[in-house]
Lab assay of single mutants.
Amino acid sequence: VTTYKLVINGKTLKGETTTKAVDAETAEKAFKQYANDNGVDGVWTYDDATKTFTVTE
């Protein structure tokens, strides 16, 4: 299990959150659900070296 980070650069929501997941794909699903629940819809990137997803509106 690895800790992944999400950086949110939204129009109305900015911040960070983390999740523990077995792989990046599982973390991405959780983060996309989180973003959707919070009304954030943007461009996604992922940096494997830092295990960090970024979504920018």
Rank of each mutant, 00 (worst) to 15 (best):
D23R: 09
D41T: 11
K5T: 11
V43L: 09
T50G: 06
A35V: 12
T18L: 12
A49T: 11
T18I: 08
K29W: 13
T54L: 06
T52G: 02
K32N: 05
N38D: 03
W44D: 00
L13H: 07
T26W: 08
Y46I: 02
G15W: 15
G15R: 09
T3N: 07
A49N: 09
A30W: 14
V40L: 10
T56V: 09
L13Q: 05
F31K: 00
D41C: 05
A27K: 00
W44V: 02
A24C: 05
G42D: 02
V43N: 09
D41V: 07
D37F: 07
K29I: 11
A49I: 11
D41N: 13
G39R: 10
V1R: 11
K32R: 12
A35H: 01
F31C: 02
T17R: 15
T2W: 11
T17G: 07
V40G: 02
I8K: 01
N9G: 03
L6F: 06
V22F: 09
V43H: 10
E16P: 03
T52R: 04
K20L: 13
E28M: 11
T19V: 10
G10T: 15
F53L: 02
Y46P: 00
G15E: 15
A27E: 00
G42C: 02
D47L: 04
K5M: 07
N9T: 08
N38P: 01
D37T: 10
F31P: 00
T18R: 14
V40I: 13
F31A: 02
V43E: 13
K51F: 09
K32C: 04
T50C: 04
Q33L: 09
N36R: 12
F31W: 02
G10P: 03
A24V: 14
G15P: 07
E28F: 15
T26Y: 12
V40Y: 04
K11Y: 06
V40P: 02
K5P: 00
N36W: 09
W44R: 00
A21M: 03
K32G: 03
E25D: 08
N38C: 05
V1N: 14
A49R: 12
D37W: 05
T26E: 12
F31D: 00
T56H: 06
K51Q: 12
T45M: 10
A35I: 05
T54S: 05
W44L: 03
K5S: 07
T12C: 08
A30C: 06
E16N: 03
T54P: 00
T19Y: 12
K14A: 10
V55R: 01
T45R: 15
G15D: 15
V1W: 15
K5Q: 04
T2Y: 12
T45L: 14
T52Q: 09
V22S: 13
T19E: 08
T19F: 14
D48C: 04
Y46W: 04
G42H: 02
V22Q: 11
T56R: 06
A21Q: 07
T18G: 04
A30Y: 10
Y4I: 01
T17N: 07
V1A: 09
Y34G: 02
N9S: 10
T50A: 09
G39N: 15
Y34E: 03
T50L: 12
A30H: 15
V40D: 01
D23Q: 04
N38S: 10
V1Y: 12
N9W: 08
T56G: 03
T52P: 00
D41P: 05
A21C: 04
T19R: 07
G15S: 10
N36G: 14
Y34S: 03
Y4T: 00
E16Q: 06
K32S: 05
L13R: 02
T45D: 12
A30D: 05
V43R: 11
N38Q: 08
V55P: 00
T19D: 03
D47F: 05
V7K: 14
D41K: 09
A35P: 01
A49F: 11
K20P: 07
K14C: 06
T50N: 08
T3I: 09
K20F: 11
A27R: 00
N38A: 14
K14D: 13
T3L: 14
E28Y: 14
K29F: 11
K11T: 14
A35L: 07
V40A: 04
K11D: 13
N38E: 14
K20N: 14
K32P: 00
G15M: 13
N38F: 13
Y34H: 08
A49D: 10
V22W: 08
T18Y: 14
T3E: 12
Y34P: 00
T50P: 02
E25R: 14
T18N: 13
D23L: 09
W44Q: 01
D41F: 10
T26F: 08
A27W: 01
V43T: 13
W44C: 02
K20C: 05
D41R: 06
K20E: 11
G42T: 01
Y4R: 00
D41W: 07
A24R: 11
N38G: 05
T45N: 09
T2S: 10
G10I: 15
A35D: 01
K14N: 15
E28C: 05
N9A: 07
T19W: 06
E16A: 04
K32T: 08
F31M: 03
I8P: 01
T3R: 05
A24S: 10
T18E: 10
V55K: 01
D47V: 11
I8M: 14
K32F: 10
L13K: 04
T45Q: 09
K5V: 12
V7I: 09
T2P: 13
T17W: 15
K11N: 11
Y4L: 01
K51S: 07
K5G: 03
Y46T: 01
E57P: 04
F53K: 00
T45E: 08
D23V: 04
T52M: 05
E57D: 09
W44N: 00
K14P: 12
I8E: 01
Y46A: 01
G42F: 02
D23N: 10
N9Q: 08
F31R: 00
G15H: 15
G42I: 01
K29Y: 15
T56I: 06
A21N: 03
V22P: 09
E25S: 14
N38I: 06
T19L: 12
K11G: 13
G10H: 15
E16H: 07
T17D: 04
